[in-house]
Amino acid sequence: MNEWRIYQGSDEPHDGIGRLPPPPPWRDFGAGRDEVTPFDRDSPGRGRQRLPLGAAYRADDGTVEAVNTALYLRRPLLVTGDPGVGKSTLADAVARELRLGTVLRWSINSRTTLRDGLYRYDSLGRLEEAGVARHSAPADEVPERADLGRYVSLGPLGTALAPYALPRVLLIDEIDKSDIDLPNDLLDVFEEGGFDIPELARAADHQETVRVRPADGGAPVTVVRGTVQCRAFPLVILTSNGEREFPPAFLRRCVRLQLPSAVEDEDRLRAIVRAHLPGADEDADAVISAFMAHASTGELATDQLLNAVYLMTRTSPEGAPGLDRLVRLVLQHLNATAPAGT
C-alpha cells in the first residue's frame, strides 16, 4: 500500500481515511467542537440498492493524486472533462473506497442559487401553524413556541458542512452551467467551512439549539445559534464540461483535474467494459472498434459504449439489430443531430 495515498483508486473499501493528518492551520475548522453528527459510513443512499457506481470506476494515477491532494489540503476538487469520462462517478468511487457514506449530490442549472444548496425554510408552514396555535389557545394562555427545526431542512451543501467527525463527499455537478455569480458565492462558504441560517439566528435567544433534517435523511444535525460549522471539511467534487471559464479567485482555491478522454485508448475502454459488464469484454471487440471509429468523426461518451456492449452481449440475438444498425441507434454523436432514418 502506498502510504501517501489515502485514496488508492482500488475497488476495496478500507479505513485509510483514519490516516488523514490534521489540516493545514489555515484550513482548520475546529475539530475540537463538542457537537458531532453521526452518519452511516456504509450506506449506499436512499434508492441506491444496486451495485454502487464507484465499484466499477477505474482511476488513473493522476486522478488518485488529485483526490489525495484535495483531501490533505481540505480544498474542493474541480474536475473537467468530456461527457462520459467519469467525472461524477469519481465521487461514488471515493465515497465507496473510503467508507464515507452516501454521496451528497447537488445538480446545478442556470437558476441555482447558493441558498438552494445550503438550506430550505418553510416560512408558509410556520405561519400557518402559528395561526392555528393562536386561535386554538385559551385567551389567558400564551401559545407555546413552535420548534423551528420542523421548518428547516439542509440542502446537500449544507449537509456536507454539518459537524461530522469525518469528511462527507459532496458532488456539485456541472458547475459550469451555473449563474455567473454562483462560483464566487461559494468562496465564502468554502473559506469559512460553515454558514448561518438567519431564521434560526434571529430566534436564538429563545431557542438556542435546533435539530434540523439533513439532505440524506440521516441523523438530525444540531444547529447552535443559527450557525452550521463543519468539523471536517468535506471532499467537494465539482464537475465541469469546460463550457465556461471560472474567475481566478475561484480557481486558486480549488485543486484542478482534467480527465483525459478514453475514446482513443482501447485498453482503457476494455477495462471499463470489464468493470461494468464482467466477461463481456471478450465478445466486445467489434463494438469497441466500431465505437472508436465512430468517435473519430464526432463526440461520444463511454456510457454509450457500455449501452452498445450490453445490447450485443446480454440480450437475445434473435431479431436483434446488427452492429451497423446498433451504431446508428446507440452511438449517436453528442455534438450533432441524429442522422436521418434512425
Rank of each mutant, 00 (worst) to 15 (best):
Ile197His: 05
Ile197Asp: 01
Ile197Gln: 01
Ile197Ala: 09
Pro198Thr: 10
Pro198Glu: 09
Leu200Asp: 04
Arg202Lys: 10
Ala204Glu: 13
Asp205Trp: 02
Gln207Ser: 08
Glu208Phe: 06
Arg211Gln: 12
Arg211Phe: 07
Arg211Cys: 05
Val212His: 03
Pro214Gln: 11
Pro214Leu: 07
Ala215Gln: 03
Asp216Cys: 07
Gly217Ser: 10
Gly217Met: 12
Gly218Asn: 03
Val221Ala: 10
Val221Glu: 11
Val221Arg: 10
Thr222Pro: 02
Thr222Tyr: 06
Val223Asp: 03
Val224Pro: 04
Arg225Lys: 15
Arg225Phe: 05
Gly226Thr: 08
Gly226Met: 10
Thr227Pro: 02
Thr227Met: 09
Thr227Cys: 09
Thr227Arg: 15
Val228Leu: 08
Cys230Thr: 15
Cys230Asn: 08
Arg231Cys: 04
Ala232Met: 06
Phe233Thr: 03
Pro234Gln: 11
Leu235Val: 09
Leu235Phe: 04
Val236Asp: 04
Val236His: 05
Ile237Val: 15
Thr239Ser: 12
Thr239Lys: 06
Ser240Pro: 09
Asn241Ile: 07
Gly242Asp: 11
Glu243Arg: 13
Arg244Ser: 13
Arg244Val: 12
Arg244Pro: 12
Glu245Ser: 15
Glu245Val: 09
Glu245Ile: 06
Pro247Ile: 08
Pro247Gly: 08
Pro247Asn: 13
Pro248Lys: 03
Ala249Glu: 15
Ala249Leu: 12
Phe250His: 02
Phe250Arg: 01
Arg252Asp: 15
Arg252Thr: 13
Arg253Cys: 10
Val255Leu: 05
Gln258Gly: 14
Leu259Ala: 10
Leu259Ile: 14
Pro260Lys: 09
Pro260Asp: 13
Ser261Ile: 01
Ala262Val: 08
Ala262Lys: 00
Ala262Arg: 05
Glu264Cys: 05
Glu264Met: 07
Asp267His: 11
Asp267Val: 14
Arg268Cys: 01
Arg268His: 13
Ala271Thr: 13
Ile272Lys: 01
Val273Ile: 14
Val273Lys: 00
Arg274Tyr: 00
Ala275Glu: 03
Ala275Met: 06
Ala275Val: 04
Leu277Ala: 06
Leu277Ile: 14
Pro278Asn: 13
Gly279His: 11
Gly279Ser: 12
Asp281Gly: 01
Asp281Cys: 02
Glu282Tyr: 11
Glu282Gln: 14
Ala284Val: 10
Ala284Asp: 06
Asp285Ala: 15
Val287Asn: 05
Ile288Val: 15
Ile288Ser: 01
Ile288Gln: 02
Ile288His: 00
His294Phe: 00
His294Asp: 06
Ala295Lys: 05
Gly298Leu: 09
Glu299Gly: 01
Glu299Trp: 02
Glu299Lys: 12
Leu300Ile: 08
Ala301Gln: 06
Thr302Tyr: 00
Thr302Trp: 00
Asp303Pro: 00
Asp303Tyr: 07
Gln304Gly: 02
Leu305Trp: 00
Leu305Ser: 06
Leu305Pro: 01
Leu306Lys: 02
Ala308Asn: 03
